[in-house]
Design a protein around this nucleic acid. Sequence first.
DNA 1: TTATTACATCGCAATATTACGATAAATTGG
DNA 2: CCAATTTATCGTAATATTGCGATGTAATAA
Lengths: 109, 109
Amino acid sequence: MGVTKTDLFTDQQNELAKIAKVFAHPARIAILEYLIQANSCINGDLVQELGLAQATISQHLRELKEIGLIKGSIEGVSVNYCIDPIRWAEVQNLFQDLFSGFPKISGCC
Amino acid sequence: MGVTKTDLFTDQQNELAKIAKVFAHPARIAILEYLIQANSCINGDLVQELGLAQATISQHLRELKEIGLIKGSIEGVSVNYCIDPIRWAEVQNLFQDLFSGFPKISGCC
DNA sequence: TTATTACATCGCAATATTACGATAAATTGG
DNA sequence: CCAATTTATCGTAATATTGCGATGTAATAA
């Protein structure tokens, strides 16, 4: 039926899955990487950089914005996007918590 | 058109996105968390635990297996699944690399 | 005001994902 | 051998995602 049964899972599980979904597209990874290196935040010249249509980039930016990973501020006729350091650290910790839950020394497999 | 233009991105970006996609469903998060705490690996009594149909769980397990995050070994009539520690650490590092690329002290936003 | 620039949103077509019943395959117990 | 058990796979319906052209909106420039 194509619809995830979120009611079967905890809020944390749903939240982490939702965040992971935003990372689950190479264009959004590329946007984040670009924002990391161009610390001075940029706008839709990601269109030039990535080779996707303007509408498509805008859509990816919105998804990144919706989970709070980036912020946009109007700068004249254009919009400056940048990573939100607070949220970035939060998301990092969510993944970290999952990964560190598994003890490296484990003779299971 | 619903098809990701992977040729526009680097192998690393595509790889990380593909891995993130596996984390992008609460059932798969739940399976991983269950495997973490039930260090002794288990099989499809995840059906009982999660409340999804057997076929659905099997499908999720396959996706986790396809990126190497878990391994299954035949144990009589059933299959024991467990986390692959090597791959787990690899994936952890991939995310870690992305997250640590952004300096926490950054007066951008 | 009008034109230009930059971005967001709408609407659609192509494709992917999710969930599950039905069925197949493989193993154990008799 | 046959039945029972467990898991995998197939097929399909419902829904979600991806990409983009077209259009809307807002700000600046002339």
